[in-house]
C-alpha cells in the first residue's frame, strides 16, 4: 500500500467511514507505526482546532499540545535536508478535509474558495531546534556592560569572512527556563513588530505563549469605567 492509499484509509477511519475489516487492519497498523500515529494525532488536532474545542490537559499541567506535536514531529520519518524545500506527500482522498470545508462553509455565508491542505510534516529547524527555544535575553558572555563610547567588547565578531558562521549562530539561549524578556526590550520588540518581516509578527505572539514574555510586563490596570465600556 502506498502512502496515499494509507493516508486515505487513515482519514476514512478517522471519519468512521471504513468498513470493519479494513478498519481493523488500519488500527493494527496504527498501533505498530509511530509515523501513522503521528498523522492520526494531527487529524485529531486539526479537527479540535476547527471546532474550537479545548484540548485535553495532561495530569502534569499545560503545554501538552506543543509537547505532543513535538513528539509527533520526532516520530516523522527523516525529512528533507533543511536547505531543500520540503518534499510533500501527495494528497489522499482524506474525508476530514470535507469536514473542514463543511465547517468553513457553516462559518460563513458563502465561500469564494476553499482550500484544505494536508497537514504538513514540519521540517526540522536546524540549529535553534537543538537548543531550548526560549526567546530569552541573552546577556553577553562578558557580564560587564560595555563602557560608553567604546562598545566593542568582542571585535572578532565585527567583520571578516571567517566570522560568517557567527552571523547564523543564534546567540546562546539561556538555559534558565524562568528567564524572560527584560521589560525595556519588550517595548522595543512590540514597537518593532509593526515593521517585522512576514510571519515574524507571529513570533512576538509565540514569545508570549511560550512564557518568555510576561503578558503583563509594562502594563497598568485599566479603570473600572474603561473595563465596563469594553464589555
Amino acid at each position: 500500500m502506498n502512502e496515499t492509499e494509507r493516508d486515505s484509509q487513515l482519514s476514512a477511519l478517522f471519519d468512521g467511514e471504513l468498513a470493519a475489516d479494513p478498519a481493523a487492519l488500519v488500527t493494527r497498523r496504527l498501533l505498530k507505526d509511530p509515523a501513522l500515529r503521528a498523522t492520526w494525532g494531527r487529524y485529531a488536532l486539526i479537527g479540535a482546532v476547527l471546532r474550537q474545542e479545548p484540548l485535553l490537559q495532561p495530569a502534569g499541567g499545560r503545554a501538552d499540545l506543543a509537547d505532543r506535536v513535538r513528539l509527533s514531529v520526532l516520530a516523522e520519518p527523516a525529512l528533507a535536508p533543511a536547505a531543500q524545500p520540503p518534499v510533500f506527500a501527495q494528497p489522499g482522498a482524506g474525508s476530514w478535509r470535507r469536514g473542514l470545508t463543511g465547517a468553513a462553509l457553516a462559518a460563513s455565508v458563502a465561500a469564494v474558495a476553499v482550500l484544505a491542505l494536508r497537514w504538513q510534516a514540519p521540517v526540522a529547524l536546524a540549529p535553534m531546534a537543538a537548543q531550548p527555544s526560549q526567546f530569552t535575553t541573552v546577556v553577553a558572555a562578558n557580564s560587564t556592560p560595555p563602557q560608553s563610547g567604546s562598545a566593542q567588547p568582542e571585535p572578532a565578531v565585527r567583520t571578516g569572512v571567517q566570522d560568517v558562521a557567527h552571523s547564523y549562530t543564534t546567540p546562546r539561549q539561556s538555559q534558565a527556563s524562568s528567564a524572560r524578556l527584560p521589560a525595556p526590550l519588550v517595548n522595543y520588540v512590540v514597537a518593532h513588530s509593526e515593521y517585522a518581516s512576514p510571519g515574524a509578527r507571529l513570533s512576538s505572539l509565540s514569545a508570549q505563549m511560550s512564557g518568555s514574555m510576561d503578558p503583563d510586563v509594562n502594563t497598568h490596570e485599566m479603570t473600572k469605567a474603561e473595563v465596563s465600556a469594553r464589555r
Binding site: R42, I46, L50, P81, A82, A83, Q84, R97, L100, T101, A104, L105, A107, S108, V109, A110, A111, V112, A113, V114, L115, A116, L117, R118, W119, Q120, P122, V123, L125, A126, P127, M128, A165, Y168, S197, P198, G199, A200, L202, S203
Partner: peptide, 28 residues
C-alpha cells in the same frame, strides 16, 4: 500557503504553514 525565513546556509529560522485555509466572502 507556506512561508519560510531562512539563513544563507539553508537553516530554516521560521516557518508558517496553513494546515487548512478557507477564503469566505463574509465572516460574521
Amino acid at each position: 500557503v507556506q512561508t519560510q525565513l531562512f539563513a544563507g546556509d539553508g537553516t530554516i529560522i521560521e516557518q508558517n504553514t496553513f494546515a487548512s485555509l478557507s477564503l469566505p466572502a463574509r465572516i460574521e
